[in-house]
Simulated assay, not measured.
Amino acid sequence: MNAERYMVRAPGKLFVAGEYAVTEPKQDSLIIAVDRYLSVDIQANRSNRLDLPQLKLTDISWKLDEEKVTFSVQDQRLNFIKHVIETFIAYAGEQSPVHIFVTSELDDRSGKKYGLGSSAALSVALMTALLKFSTNSQAAKDPLTIFKLASIAHFKAQGNGSCADIAASTYGGWLNYRSFDSDWLIAQLNQAQSVSALVQSDWPDLKITPLKQPEELHFLIGWTKESAQTAPMVAKVRNLKTEQPERYQAFLQDSQRAVEQIITGFQQGEVEPIFAGITANRAALKMIGTEAGVPIESPALTKLIEAVSTHGAAKTSGAGGGDCGIAFVSDPADCEHIYQLWTKAGIDPLDIHVSTDGVVIY
């Protein structure tokens, strides 16, 4: 029996700019990996076994039937894992049995959810672990292969999404991300294109470009203590595409201009374009939220943002409606003052920073 054992760790993510628009073709976004991680411990076992103790899912076995996974228990929370394993098998073939043990620090120990992208980190860490343990272990060293395989699994599980969070968990750091053509991927999957062929293909429109944080830029994260249901909010915004196409296109243009301004600031190492772009992206998101009837900027997030107004720039992160907000300042002395304002407003400053590493194998 294979005596190898590996620990694989993938970071969570936060959106910085370009939310909602990033699901459309040729729309830029900015996303970061954060230093909170999901870990997968994988080792040889007599039979396939899975443990996720933090979800109270333990001693779960699975069987394969024509590359389809059947777990010993039925639980919707296993859906992403099922599709990751099936995508891996379609790519690398059936391998020797393993024991997989999953732990996460992406949410608070008390159960508070911050919105750091646990499903993406799980998909990336588990896919990397399976690849490393397989006869095709070299693939575990190639971030683009990992990204593509995790994205295929994601689309099989969910059917949509930008996969920006998968890029963050795979590559780490600050990323200028532009999504691949999702219609193309769906068409390939519907045509039963092989997973190996898909991995080897050039994915239309995909862009993953690392960025360097300017030395004068300081990045803060605050948590509103509110959670948000992302899917209904995204669906309402997407409805504007057919109901009010002109306003939807205006939003896409505003978002793209704002993100380009932020990226220029990163490329030039200057904070003022970043502040201006963050402020412009906030305005675009508020507009589309109002038009769609979606509370992207909740009252708590507005308090978080306004506390920063005289120091730098701030906005919602991700779908909004709750979870985290982000802020940028140039003077390190402002950080503590903003934290005090946030705390007074009932917002928790989070001791979370950018993770320069993406998925790592130990």
Rank of each mutant, 00 (worst) to 15 (best):
Q74S: 12
V84P: 07
A44W: 00
E66G: 03
K68R: 14
K56S: 14
Q76C: 05
L30F: 01
F80I: 15
L78Q: 09
P53Y: 13
Y37I: 12
S72R: 04
D41G: 05
E66T: 01
Q43M: 09
D35G: 10
L50H: 01
I42G: 02
I81Q: 07
V34R: 05
F80K: 11
E67K: 15
R49W: 00
R49E: 00
I60E: 02
N48P: 03
K63T: 10
Q74K: 13
P53R: 02
F88E: 02
R49G: 00
L55W: 15
A44P: 02
S61M: 01
D59S: 07
A33E: 08
T87F: 04
R36D: 00
F80P: 00
D75I: 06
S39Q: 08
D75E: 13
H83L: 09
S39M: 06
N45D: 15
R77M: 03
A90L: 15
N79Q: 13
E66V: 03
I32V: 15
H83N: 12
Q74F: 06
L38F: 11
E67L: 09
I32S: 07
R46L: 03
I31F: 01
H83P: 01
V40I: 10
L38M: 12
T58W: 05
N45T: 02
K63L: 04
K82C: 08
I60F: 02
L55F: 15
S29L: 10
S72Q: 08
K82N: 05
L57V: 02
Y37G: 12
T87L: 04
K68P: 14
W62E: 02
K63P: 00
L64N: 09
D51T: 06
L50P: 07
L64D: 04
F88L: 07
R36E: 08
D35Y: 11
L78I: 08
L38V: 15
Q43R: 14
E67N: 15
D51C: 02
Q74R: 08
K68C: 11
L57C: 03
Q74A: 10
A90C: 11
L64Q: 05
Y91H: 06
V40A: 09
L30D: 04
N45C: 05
V34W: 09
S61F: 03
D59V: 00
D59M: 00
R49V: 12
A90N: 15
S47K: 13
N79A: 12
L55D: 12
L78E: 11
F71G: 07
T70R: 11
V84E: 02
S47V: 10
I31A: 08
N79G: 09
D35V: 15
R77Y: 08
V40D: 08
L52I: 11
Q74L: 05
R46V: 00
E86Y: 13
D51R: 00
I42P: 01
S39W: 04
N45P: 00
I32A: 10
W62L: 03
Q43A: 13
S72W: 04
L50Q: 02
I85N: 06
N48Y: 15
S72V: 08
A44K: 01
V84C: 07
I85W: 05
W62S: 05
E66D: 15
S39C: 10
Q76L: 12
I89S: 06
D75W: 05
